[in-house]
Amino acid sequence: MSNSYTKAAFGLAITSAEADLLRRVITAIEMIGDAETSIDALEAHYATIGADFAALFPRTELSPFDGLLDLFPDENYLVLDFDIDIGEPNAEGQVIVFLSGEQFGIETAANLIQRCARSALPFGFEWASDHDRLRPGEFGGGYVAITETAKEFGHTSQMLDRAMGRARDEGADGFVLTIRHPEHGLSFWNDTDGFDRLSRARIFSEAEAANFDVPIAHDQPEWLACPRRFAFDPYIAVAPSA
């Protein structure tokens, strides 16, 4: 018998109001996860839970707490699979919340933070995966970057695949079209403003670059492999907020 783990441990600072909301959310999740909780008990608790909760997690006709379901990747498993320690407010009214676990629900934690800890955004955390036996492919990790509108998930195995792709092919991240100015250096093409700074550059695939009608400029435009630190990584998943 062997065991695999997904581990994370981190803290974030939120407001006292958010901490209070988070406590109510945790209590509601515990209630709906308990099969012995009756619908009458849920309705009675919902009547006292507060307008801020009701606005953030709208009820349905079937249940007052159906608004919580989209926090979870599996609506049949309504459990916070990590520990949450909520501290006391400091002199500035901030509360430190500590999340940790060895079977850490990455997506659930990201959803909970995005919905209930808006003052902390943008926020990110790292996680690790390991195994109690030294098996190939059982070790790695990743991160989640959370904003008000999206959640970005990255995994070390995907980053490694991308790094190896770059090692084999310098154009693995695509290409940018450049011109060189004698005083200002390189400028990079985008379809809106022409040649501009790198942060606004259009990234071309090899096929797109081969078929692109290169514009006439004061200098001969050249194709360069896209700088790796700038390139958008197609292996990173970005999920919009619920």
Rank of each mutant, 00 (worst) to 15 (best):
D66E: 07
M1K: 13
Q220I: 12
F232I: 10
P227C: 00
A167D: 13
Q220N: 14
A17T: 15
T192G: 07
A207W: 00
Y46C: 00
R135I: 13
V238N: 05
R115G: 00
E18C: 06
A145G: 13
L68C: 07
F57P: 00
Y46L: 01
R168T: 15
D193Y: 08
I179F: 06
L71T: 08
L112E: 06
L68A: 02
V97C: 03
R166Y: 13
G137T: 09
A28M: 02
D66S: 05
T149Y: 03
K151N: 07
P234D: 08
E30P: 03
F123Q: 08
H155M: 08
D169S: 14
F232A: 15
A145L: 14
R115V: 11
G101A: 12
N76G: 11
P182S: 11
A109P: 03
S63C: 12
F175A: 05
L78S: 00
G105T: 08
R24A: 03
S4I: 11
A17C: 09
D196V: 02
N190L: 06
V214W: 02
L22W: 05
Q94V: 00
G50F: 01
R200Y: 08
A201L: 06
R162K: 04
F212H: 14
G194T: 02
L160Q: 13
V97S: 00
T192D: 13
Y46R: 07
G124H: 02
L177A: 04
G87N: 04
A35W: 11
Q158V: 13
V97L: 05
A41C: 04
N90H: 03
